[in-house]
């Protein structure tokens, strides 16, 4: 399903909605483009004129600090005019449909929407119904996809590990509800890592998770053996109320990443987390702030990756439809 929607007739990026269906070549192009933006942040003038005169609207139907800020900075560094709108209370509650919200903004001559929404498929829906000249970047939709997070993680991994094909990557925690996990798994498999391993109790794994191309493990101690990259996922507090887990305490005991557990992985393993971190729930502070943690590097990389994706999506000539 899905995938031709995000490429134009020449196979160039038009929308960026999901990793699903994108090939290694395109993902590598994104990483290489991001590379060229990395040095910029240290310069006096942190701007390039690539998107001068373009209007970008960050449309956040769900709260976010990190993602929204890095998208906003990325747009500004590309010299675009950017507006961020938080529609924390759902538009339907106000009586306006998602489509009407989009149509209204379109009428203000927008060139790109960056969308975060709590419902899976919302970014696809907007891309399908928006005017042909507008690009849509998915900044996270429900439990479906968070493709820019996956790309910045891939980018971070590449900075520390040279050869994807030898890597064993563990994703630990609430896979079931995680759009980050879905996109990470697709991205890691697309670039051809040796293994993606998911480690979680059955209650936090989706049905038939192995169909995503992962190995499954329910035990952290066993699961961390031979691992090069550890990606921790945030555990939402509401999971306890819906009978998915007994307590934060028990979760930390079983699946929390501590120094002891980390020692089971390869000695040069890196520790990643898409944030925000729940210290003492999924990760111990000593690990989060420790020498193997690259969590803050991920955040910085978020800007370069988002610049790359925005620039590439706006390059397209001629719409796909």
């Amino acid at each position: 399903m899905t995938n031709n929607l995000q490429l134009n007739s020449e196979g160039k990026l038009k929308h960026f909605l999901t990793i699903d269906g994108l090939d290694k070549g395109l993902l590598t192009e994104i990483l290489d483009t991001a590379e060229s933006f990395v040095g910029m942040s240290d310069q006096q003038i942190k701007k390039v004129p690539l998107l001068r005169g373009k209007t970008i609207v960050n449309l956040f139907f769900e709260n976010s600090t990190r993602t929204r800020t890095t998208f906003e900075l990325a747009a500004k560094r590309l010299s675009a005019d950017v507006i961020s709108i938080s529609i924390a209370t759902s538009s339907t509650a106000k009586g306006e449909s998602l489509l009407d919200t989009i149509r209204n903004l379109e009428a203000m001559f927008v060139d790109m929407f960056v969308v975060r929404h709590s419902i899976s498929g919302a970014a696809h829906f907007i891309a399908q119904h928006t005017a042909p000249h507008i690009s849509v970047i998915n900044a996270g939709d429900g439990q479906h996809a968070h493709p820019t997070q996956a790309m910045l993680d891939l980018f971070t991994i590449r900075q520390y590990k040279k050869d994807f094909s030898k890597l064993r990557v563990a994703i630990i925690g609430d896979i079931l509800h995680s759009r980050v996990a879905r996109s990470e798994i697709q991205a890691l498999n697309a670039v051809g890592v040796a293994e993606v391993r998911v480690i979680a109790p059955k209650t936090l794994l989706p049905a038939h998770v192995e169909t995503l191309g992962v190995t499954v493990c329910h035990n952290l101690t066993e699961g961390l053996k031979d691992i090069d990259v550890i990606i921790m996922l945030r555990l939402q507090k509401e999971r306890m109320a819906s009978a998915l887990l007994p307590s934060e305490n028990e979760y930390f005991k079983c699946f929390g990443l501590t120094e002891d557990k980390l020692a089971i992985a390869k000695p040069d393993a890196i520790v990643m987390h898409p944030g925000p971190i729940n210290r003492g729930v999924e990760i111990d502070s000593k690990v989060a702030d420790g020498p193997q943690s690259v969590i803050l590097r991920q955040v910085s990389n978020g800007i370069a990756i988002r610049m790359a994706i925005m620039a590439m999506a706006m390059q397209k000539q001629g719409a796909s439809e």
């Binding site: 899976s120 479906h144 879905r182 989706p206």
Partner: peptide, 15 residues
């Protein structure tokens, strides 16, 4: 349906 598609697209599923 709770299966490969619900898992791939992160959609609420019915077993």
């Amino acid at each position: 349906h709770e299966g490969a598609i619900s898992t791939r697209y992160g959609l609420p599923s019915i077993p």
